[in-house]
Amino acid sequence: MSELEPLIGEPLALDLVNTRPVDADLLATPEQLAHWLGLQAERLTEPLGQPARADLAAVREVRDHTAAVLDALLHDRRPPAAALRGLADAQSAAPAIRRLRWDGTALAATPQRSGTPGARLAATLADAAVDLLTDPAIARLKRCAADDCVMLFLPAHPRRQWCSPERCGNRARVARYYQRHKATTN
């Protein structure tokens, strides 16, 4: 497992994109994907089991397409057509069908996907990306203010600057403290 733990707590699609911190890929192996899926288990309706290399490739494609669209939005550019097409392809590879079932007192609709486990996972993640990208909150999307961080987040508070107070926020506070005390000792 990587020394760097995946950052979670943002919308699922951002958590996926944030598995690529600077100079690392936290989804480089099927085992790392299994670890990330475990961290996201409450948000995923269908367990994948032990991911295979093909599952990892499908998830990484969705991540790359989502990242390309988010980068375009951050720079006020039109999202790449290939990235939008890639997300749509991932969704259509395992379409969701709402199945009716009787829960004992009422009818309930439960989405079910067809396809391989990896295609179903990629489609679920592509759906999460579409949900994020079409949410009005996407206008608040920010990149972490730390010089060496590429993480993205949706701030709940407009003054939030860092992806995580424990990671980049703490490092920035320590650096400011060091600079202040260095200036007073010189």
Results as ranks from 00 to 15, higher is better:
Pro6Phe: 00
Leu107Met: 13
Cys163Ile: 06
Trp162His: 09
Gln161Asn: 12
Arg143Asn: 03
His157Gly: 01
Gly115Lys: 10
Val17Glu: 06
Leu87Ile: 13
Thr124Cys: 08
Ala67His: 10
Asp127Thr: 13
Trp36His: 12
Arg77Cys: 05
Arg160His: 08
Thr19Asn: 02
Lys142Phe: 02
Ala67Phe: 00
Thr45Asn: 12
Glu5Leu: 00
Asp148Met: 00
Leu125Val: 09
Glu42Arg: 15
Ser92Gln: 14
Thr110Val: 15
Thr110Arg: 14
Ile138His: 07
Cys144Trp: 09
Ala28Ile: 04
Asn18Gln: 07
Leu121Met: 14
Ala90Trp: 04
Leu48Tyr: 01
Ser114Pro: 00
Ala106Phe: 00
Arg60Asn: 14
Thr66Lys: 04
Arg167Gln: 11
Gln91Glu: 15
Cys163Val: 07
Pro80Tyr: 01
Ala68Tyr: 02
Thr19Asp: 06
Leu107Gln: 12
Thr185Cys: 05
Thr45Met: 11
Arg143Leu: 05
His75Val: 00
Arg171Cys: 05
His157Tyr: 03
Ala57Val: 15
Arg60Met: 08
Cys163Trp: 06
Ser114Arg: 13
Ala82Trp: 05
Glu3Ser: 07
Arg140Asn: 05
Pro136Val: 02
Cys149Thr: 11
Ala54Trp: 02
Leu26Lys: 03
Arg101Gly: 06
Leu100Gln: 10
Arg20Gly: 02
Thr184Lys: 14
Gly9Asn: 10
Ala41Met: 03
Ala67Glu: 07
Cys163Gln: 10
Ala106Val: 03
Phe153Met: 09
Arg173Ser: 14
Ala88Val: 13
Pro80Leu: 02
Ala93Phe: 06
Gly169Met: 06
Arg101Asn: 04
Ala82Gln: 15
Asp76Asn: 13
Gln112Lys: 10
Arg143Lys: 13
Leu4Lys: 03
Ala52Thr: 15
Arg99Tyr: 08
Ser92Asn: 05
Asn186Glu: 14
Ile97Tyr: 13
Trp162Asn: 09
Leu39Ile: 03
Ala129Val: 10
Thr184Glu: 15
Arg173Leu: 12
Asp89Arg: 14
Ala183Pro: 04
Ala94Trp: 07
His65Pro: 00
Ala128Val: 06
Gln161Thr: 09
Thr185Met: 09
Ala172Pro: 08
Lys182Pro: 00
Asp64Val: 04
Ser2Pro: 13
Pro51Glu: 11
Leu4Thr: 12
Leu4Arg: 10
Thr116Cys: 11
Ala172Phe: 05
Asp15Tyr: 10
Pro21Trp: 05
His35Ser: 11
Leu27Gln: 10
Gly49Ile: 04
Val62Pro: 04
Leu27His: 10
Lys142Asp: 01
Ala90Leu: 11
Met1Lys: 06
Leu37Gly: 06
Gly38Ala: 03
Cys163Gly: 14
Pro21Ala: 01
Leu33Asp: 11
Pro51His: 04
Ile138Gln: 11
Arg101Tyr: 04
Arg98Tyr: 14
Cys168Pro: 08
Pro111Val: 11
Ala145Trp: 08
Leu27Gly: 07
Trp36Tyr: 13
Arg159Trp: 02
Arg43Ser: 14
Leu87Asn: 07
